[in-house]
Design a protein around this nucleic acid. Structure first.
Lengths: 196, 196
DNA sequence: CAGAAGTTCTAGCATTGCTAGCGACAAGAG
DNA sequence: CTCTTGTCGCTAGCAATGCTAGAACTTCTG
């Protein structure tokens, strides 16, 4: 026993931890897929358990509750948003700011459930503080980078907050059918006209 | 009987209809008060029934379901917002736009549950169409009137939509603790700087 | 007063998030 | 190989939710 046995124990534990981590992610993915397919109302612990082919209590061995699962989906969604913004490239004659704005609104429009978990539902994720998830900082960082060229002598972070607020407002009010759908590009034109 | 009886019947029906209308409003008010005091999660049909001192099925004789009650609260909330914006007067040296913006954000901050029902929760109220409730048109009208002086040659309605989006974004992101609380006025300054 | 009409309540259903506690099964000891 | 031990997942159930059927009561009519 001794060394070889201990070694085996360790490696078994490793495998278990790995499998556990995989299942952890499986749950998060299933929740996101279910939400994107049928909305968050359809994400019940029972349906989620069915989808991952485990029973409900297994969910609770991974997460404190349903809210914690939604929060994980939201945080990983921020990572996706950051990547989506990063790969947005301005078309010829288009500013980076505009390309980023369009990419942001595209994300909100194409993945409404994910966007909802990230910024609409009341999921308490630390934001301003130092322990804000990296995914979040990445996403905000993309916005900052897009705003920077037009900031001039204005405070960059504050201006980014305002820019973000406008995009977020347009995204949510559009989704709630509060804005005229056929004037989307006009609104974007106006926003760009304001920023300089 | 005949005429006098028929008259009595009519007047009794009138009384009944009046009492019914009073109870209708009582339910709406109770829902709003409960939501403002403890949040929408606390607004269950049982607690609401308790508060109005009737049983649950009475609620359903007035409204199709809980959603319909929330929708009524939201619509009447728009009326309150319209009045709140209307009585906002710019301080000396302050633009009407700024006074309206501050009043709007004050409303969202002071009455978060009401604001939530109006613009955050997914309550499908007809907005753009002709059968949009008057309260809604009034509120949007106040925003239009505030934007008008700075619109210049830009399309007034579109510019108002953008202005509203910015305010709504600031309101919701602030409420979700996504923006730095101590930079609120800086953000407003920036918004005002953009608008001219 | 007796029946009719309308109104309100009791009791219950299905679904939700969440949990206690049992049973199976694998890992280590002898 | 067998027994013990402990981890793991599942069955079954609880309390709370939105909503509704049908009984029970009140009020009006003749």
């Amino acid at each position: 026993m001794s060394s070889s046995a201990r070694f085996r124990v360790v490696t078994i534990q490793n495998r278990r931890e790995r499998e556990r981590a995989e299942r952890h992610q499986l749950i998060i993915d299933a929740a996101r897929e279910l939400a994107e397919a049928e909305g968050w109302d359809a994400v019940t612990t029972r349906r989620l358990a069915d989808k991952v082919e485990y029973s409900q209590p297994v969910l609770y061995s991974h997460f404190k509750g349903k809210d914690a699962i939604v929060r994980e989906v939201a945080i990983q969604g921020c990572g996706e948003l950051a990547r989506h913004l990063r790969k947005a490239r301005p078309a010829p004659g288009q500013s980076r700011l505009r390309a980023t704005a369009e990419a942001y609104l595209e994300f909100a429009r194409e993945r409404p459930a994910l966007y909802d978990a990230m910024f609409v539902q009341q999921v308490d994720i630390p934001f301003g503080t130092d322990d804000a998830p990296q995914e979040l900082r990445d996403a905000f960082g993309e916005l900052v980078a897009a705003v920077e060229p037009v900031a001039g002598d204005r405070d960059l972070e504050t201006l980014t907050e305002v820019f973000w607020s406008t995009l977020h407002g347009i995204a949510t009010l559009t989704h709630g059918k509060r804005l005229r759908p056929d004037h989307h590009l006009d609104r974007l034109d106006l926003v760009m006209g304001l920023s300089r």
